[in-house]
Nucleic acid binder design. Structure first.
Ligand code: DCP
Ligand code: MG
Ligand code: MG
Length: 936
DNA sequence: ATCCTCCCCTAC
DNA sequence: TAAGGTAGGGGAGGAT
């Protein structure tokens, strides 16, 4: 029952059989339990059906009730049964449409809403009121919480205190607010006048905020940004707070370079120790003195500086100020937090909790300036500064004197120079310092002395430990691990078995307060990327590709700025989950599957044309209908992190001249050595990783193939979105009609065809699309797949009929063609075992029916030669096939070439012939696209 | 064993 | 209206 993996299966309707060996018992338990519950439900439904009050009002609604509610759990269940809805006793996030809940503790919030697409948490009144109104009322008024990025409470005590009686609605909130504002007011008249003053002060603050937002609006152009607006990406990034904090590190690097080198350095306690990652008491990280410093409610504090009228008001930073807005709150000041407001909450919820909330816009320049000031101060105090984020850093002050004194001096300087407060945690390692900062906030210092460490840790909920987010917390809950003390009850090995090697180790270390990391300057980035997952709605494939080009340009700009190039490219895509509705969050991505595909290029690049072209290839390979795309991005890795100051300028030119989409071939990896010039033996001698990498570089999706297994750690199977089975030894086509056998005049060289054994002819003809059959040839209905294992289960375009992305014409046929070729080669190889291999180097099947074939026939007395002749003929067929694909179906062409290449290596005795075919095709590709397809 | 890809998770 | 980015760590499972 306690198997944590079991939960991964509860939402998978068809459970693959191979999952039975793990998680089985838990799953079975859940299934039984739920079956019972549903039987119970059915009975109630039957009862309800007999009563007069039944309806279908809640059809499609599936609720899960959490905690005590009015009406009760049981009553709600009955109401659901009576009115067409359904009820889950357990929370399955894929199935439950509404969580019903009256009281929200932060623990609950955390429990439910570290999800990617949270299920709305609704007060039970929604059900009652909807029934009264006899229609489903909008959730908005009843929503408790709907967002991610939940702020953790500073201490366990605070967490348990922080209970919001949400069902009392704004009445309770007004009461709280009064309490906060009029704490000292004693008599009733005094209270009344204090309340009036408070209202006036808030009014003034609201006006200031309104002006600030208006000033900020100047930035936004009148065209409401959506796709096809070429400005969209830039506008979006300029407005995105996550972009701002996400790109901040790249910006600070430059700052660090031009900053004061004359700072005291911490003493090296154990300079001889060079081991890293050792969490032992004697490691290099032991005996250190670390300060972790973090600005208090950073964005909110900075915004608050704008005007003195904002002081003392509950304030949040967000784009939206509407009482029904779905915009997220980025940061809330500590006064606002008293109302339960925190980062990640949507503005509507914030306003509901605190109607007087003052909402300030993002002041990115100010954030940046103040961050820079703060870092200046930090770097004057110690040379060992490790930036964490725009408002946060670690300092190593070992041997530099009283750490509390240093921390206070820094805090005081920050306060003085910026007007914002910071808090600092002090401890012997980074982990503990960070935990101490939480205790210190707001505007304080907290030193976690070694003697206090255990006491501090033991009661700490695991979610407070860095690295424990929503997912891990859930897994731990299932292991009945709630606190660090619980973690300590497990052995390290047990945790590693349950959670993985590193994760288990890290959790175990954290529970004991161990952390071997050293305060270090940031290392150069290992990847550089850009993505947009908001406002992404495409009407045409071309729109998507044009937008992707824009992202490619952006990524290259960043590569350039970093002075690096890269040779691995990953395309990231968000695809709307099947059936997912338009999300409540305006222009949000809603519920999505995340897909990615990567390729390794042969050379380093920061060229927008190349990046865009490769990205387009991957986009096509992912085969997501453009209407389903909700987010898209490119990341470049395998960075060239050396000199590379050369060739930078030439690149600038290329940005300017990067052409429109239609001019970019889909696989324009230029400057590749043509495969025809490569010596196969040399290539065979290449290190396998390199060879494989090169192969993959052009490997399209077609032959990749995870098995249809459910991944242990993943919520769902990847097999659901990709072909189920690898076509290794392809099945022979056994359904060719007898007539297909007849050789006939055909676009395919009939002489070549005639050379083939009858069975082979049948195979090949059966796989030809009708337009390649001889004119008189009856068309074959079987060119579509009969091999179920190669049918893409996610060919949603085909399945749903919403088909802008119909399956690439000819890909399946090309697969079948290769399958037949494979079978033929295998057959030939088995009958014609070459004893003494005679090279046919000079021979090329350059023309449809040149003398080569006849000559070969004449002179062929040896078995091998006969085999070679057949192979030659097959290769010729392949070239013709490839020609047909050349113009309009590069993906299939790639597939073909890759296969040919693969066969060339599989049957070295056919190498020369197959290579000749490949060369011929490559020449044609070269002629049309300026570069060959990369093989190998 | 070790690498690689395609994820997921976490933090700000 | 609203701007759900970015980078690294790590795990599973296949390929080599
Ligand atoms: N979900 C989040 C978390 C943070 N931020 C931004 C706004 C914050 O001001 C800044 C710093 O993040 P912190 O986690 O340090 O949060 P605060 O500084 O706002 O509050 P605290 O006093 O708890 O540090 O990053 C954000 O936009 N969205
Ligand atoms: Mg902060
Ligand atoms: Mg911070």
């Amino acid at each position: 029952m306690s198997d944590p993996r079991g939960r991964h299966f509860v939402k998978e309707q068809p459970v693959p059989s191979d999952s039975a060996h793990h998680g089985g018992s838990f799953r079975k338990y859940m299934e039984d339990k739920n079956r019972k519950l549903h039987e119970q439900f059915e009975q109630q439904a039957d009862l309800a059906a007999q009563s007069s009050s039944s309806s279908k009002l809640f059809a499609g609604v599936r609720i899960h009730v959490n905690g005590l509610t009015t009406p009760t759990h049981q009553e709600l269940k009955l109401l659901m049964a009576q009115h067409g809805g359904s009820f889950e006793n357990y929370y399955y996030r894929d199935q439950v449409t509404h969580i019903i809940c009256s009281n929200l503790t932060d623990q609950k919030i955390k429990h439910f809403h570290k999800e990617r697409m949270p299920t709305p948490i609704i007060r039970p009144e929604w059900i009652v009121d909807s029934l009264k109104a006899d229609k489903l009322l909008p959730l908005r008024e009843y929503q408790l919480w709907r967002l991610r990025h939940v702020q953790q409470m500073a201490t366990p005590a605070a967490a348990s205190q922080q209970v919001v009686q949400a069902s009392e609605g704004t009445v309770a909130l007004h009461a709280e607010m009064k309490q906060a504002h009029n704490a000292q007011a004693a008599g009733s008249t005094a209270a009344a006048s204090a309340a009036a003053a408070s209202r006036a002060a808030n009014q003034a603050a609201q006006e200031v905020a309104t002006r600030a937002r208006a000033a900020c609006d100047v930035l936004r152009g009148p065209p409401m940004t959506t796709h096809n607006n070429p400005e969209f990406m830039d506008t979006y990034f300029r407005s995105s707070r996550l972009h701002f904090i996400g790109t901040w590190k790249a910006r600070i690097e430059a700052l660090a370079a031009r900053m004061c080198p004359e700072a005291p350095s911490p003493s090296l306690a154990h300079p001889s120790h060079l081991r890293i990652g050792q969490a032992t008491a004697s490691g290099p990280a032991s005996g250190r003195c670390i300060i972790h410093l973090d600005m208090d409610c950073f964005f909110a504090s900075v915004a608050e500086l704008t005007d003195p009228a904002l002081k003392g008001q509950p304030l949040a930073v967000s784009h939206s100020n509407s009482a029904q807005g779905t915009g997220e709150i980025s940061s809330a000041n500590y006064l606002a937090r008293e109302f339960g407001i925190c980062a990640g909450m949507c503005i509507a919820e914030g306003k509901r909790r605190c109607p007087n909330l003052v909402v300030m816009p993002y002041l990115f320049e100010r954030f940046e300036e103040i961050s820079e000031q703060v870092y200046r101060i930090l770097m004057q105090n110690t040379s060992a500064v490790q930036p964490v984020s725009v408002d946060e850093a670690y300092l190593d002050v070992t041997g530099l004197g009283d750490p509390v004194g240093i921390a206070e001096a820094i805090r005081s300087a920050i306060q003085q120079e910026t007007g914002c407060t910071a808090s600092a945690g002090i401890a012997a390692n980074m982990l503990l310092a960070r935990l101490a900062t939480k205790r210190a906030k707001p505007d304080g210092v907290f030193q976690l002395l070694p003697s206090q460490v255990d006491a501090h840790l033991l009661a700490l909920p695991v979610a407070e430990l860095p690295g424990v987010g929503w997912a891990l917390q859930r897994r731990l809950t299932e292991l009945e691990i709630a606190t660090a003390a619980d973690v300590r009850k497990k052995t390290r090995g047990a945790l590693q078995r349950e959670l993985g090697d590193k994760t288990g180790q890290a959790l175990w270390d954290a529970a004991y307060g161990l952390d071997g990391r050293l305060v270090e300057a940031p290392k150069p980035r290992k990847s550089i990327g850009a993505e947009v997952n908001w406002g992404v709605r495409f009407a045409t494939e071309n729109d998507a590709e044009v937008f992707l080009d824009g992202i490619a340009g952006e990524v290259c700009k960043r590569l350039d700025a970093a002075g690096v190039r890269g040779r691995a490219l990953t395309l990231k895509l968000k695809r709307r989950k099947a059936g997912a509705p338009e999300p409540p969050k305006f222009m949000g991505h809603g519920s999505c599957d995340n897909l990615s595909r990567s390729m390794t290029l042969t050379h380093f690049t920061a060229n927008p044309g190349e990046v865009a072209a490769a990205a387009r290839t991957l986009l096509r390979a992912l085969r997501v209908p453009c209407q389903e795309i909700r987010g898209i991005g490119i990341a470049i890795a395998k960075l060239d992190t050396e000199t590379c100051s050369s060739s930078r300028s030439s690149h600038q030119q290329q940005i300017a001249t990067a052409t429109g989409p239609s001019r970019i071939p889909y696989t324009p990896i230029v400057a590749l050595p043509p495969a025809s010039q490569l010596d196969a033996e040399v290539l065979d001698a290449l290190p396998l990783p390199l060879r494989r990498e090169l192969e993959r570089a052009y490997g399209l999706d077609a032959q990749r193939s995870p098995p249809a297994k459910v991944r242990r750690g993943a919520g769902r199977s990847r097999a659901a979105e990709r072909p189920a089975k690898r076509m290794r030894t392809p099945p022979l086509n056994t359904r060719a009609p007898a007539e297909a056998r007849r050789p006939a005049p055909t676009p395919i060289d009939p002489n070549v065809l005639a050379q083939l054994p009858e069975a082979m002819q049948r195979e090949l003809l059966a796989t030809l699309p009708s337009n390649r059959l001889p004119p008189s040839h009856p068309s074959h209905p079987l060119t579509t797949s009969r091999d179920d294992t190669t049918v893409r289960p996610d060919d949603r375009a085909a399945a749903s009929g919403a088909s802008a992305w119909a399956p690439a014409p000819g890909l399946q046929e090309t697969r079948d063609m290769c399958a037949a070729l494979h079978a033929a080669l295998e057959a030939i190889a088995s009958t014609a075992q070459p004893r003494t291999w005679r090279k046919h180097q000079g021979r090329r099947s350059t023309g449809p029916d040149d003398g080569g074939v006849a000559t070969a026939v004449q002179s062929s007395v040896e078995v091998e030669d006969l085999g070679m002749l057949k192979v030659e003929a097959l290769c010729e067929l392949c070239v013709q096939w490839g020609q047909g694909l050349l113009v309009d179906n590069l993906e299939s062409l790639h597939f073909l070439l890759r296969r040919l290449h693969q066969y060339q290596r599989t049957w070295t005795q056919f190498q020369a012939h197959i290579k000749a075919g490949i060369d011929q095709l490559q020449k044609l590709v070269q002629a049309q696209y300026g570069c060959p397809v990369l093989l190998l």
